[in-house]
Design a protein around this nucleic acid. Structure first.
Lengths: 130, 130
DNA sequence: TTGACATATTCCTATATGGGAATGTAATGT
DNA sequence: ACATTACATTCCCATATAGGAATATGTCAA
């Protein structure tokens, strides 16, 4: 099986950085496609295609105004993402203390055999895979 | 250009539903791979690969315990997502009233020429593309 | 050392992608 | 009708998937 379609849900749709930029840009005010193209410096077909994806998952609304199409972010559709991430909020509070501990142990010369955690951040990751 | 790698950032990594399930499952307590496999009913190689992606973007930590590898969600890495979605929180409050208006207009028989909004949710979307 | 267990990696393939160029389509003004 | 403006769609292709099967790696126990 291949990767899920970008149009399968909001999670996949916002994985594209460009689409996030667009959502940010048209969050407070509806804008015609051309303005998005100019302001964000992407190609026009590109923007149209991104907007189509966003439209299919409900992340934007459209309205025609003469020959222009006015797009606007439908914030409501971002909510599921917000709620999912929210379930982790209480965890990072608990983990902060643990992270601090590690940081201190790291800068501490008596650092010989800690629990040997692998942080997983790309930097540390590459450093650990020699 | 193709789609960005799943390992390029947290947004791409959590686009996979299975990876979100894993993150949920190992959020409160570290777990060995086998337990994830059994509990979530995915293939073992599949789980290992998902965990690798999550590890590369820093969404999980690992620790070895004998022959087992104990993985655990690194909630801190979810924060960027939380913060991005949070910027939209104030918008959906404002839009709620507007959405209600539309809903009422929809069920209202005197509905002849409203602003003709396209909601963009998949259901409405398909209905609009005849 | 050998075997069993736990996990990781490789090989395979169908599939969807994003961008640019070119083209299609819809609405306007004259 | 026609040219123009504003978008949308199609065609192109290199690339990265997610699984499953098979295999490799690593660790412990006797």
């Amino acid at each position: 099986m291949a990767r899920a379609a970008t149009t399968s849900d909001a999670f996949n749709a916002v994985a594209e950085p460009r689409r996030r930029e667009i959502l940010n840009f048209i969050a407070l005010q509806e804008r015609p496609v051309g303005e998005i193209v100019d302001s964000l410096g992407m190609g026009q077909p590109s923007v149209s295609k991104h907007l189509r994806v966003l439209l299919e998952v409900g992340l934007v609304n459209v309205r025609r105004d003469g020959r222009r199409m006015l797009y606007r972010t439908n914030a409501e559709a971002v909510r599921p993402l917000h709620e999912w991430t929210e379930t982790f909020e209480r965890f990072w509070r608990h983990q902060l203390s643990r992270v601090k501990e590690r940081a201190e142990r790291k800068s501490n010369p008596s650092n010989d055999k800690g629990p040997e955690f692998i942080s997983g951040r790309k930097d540390d990751f590459d450093r650990n895979k020699n």
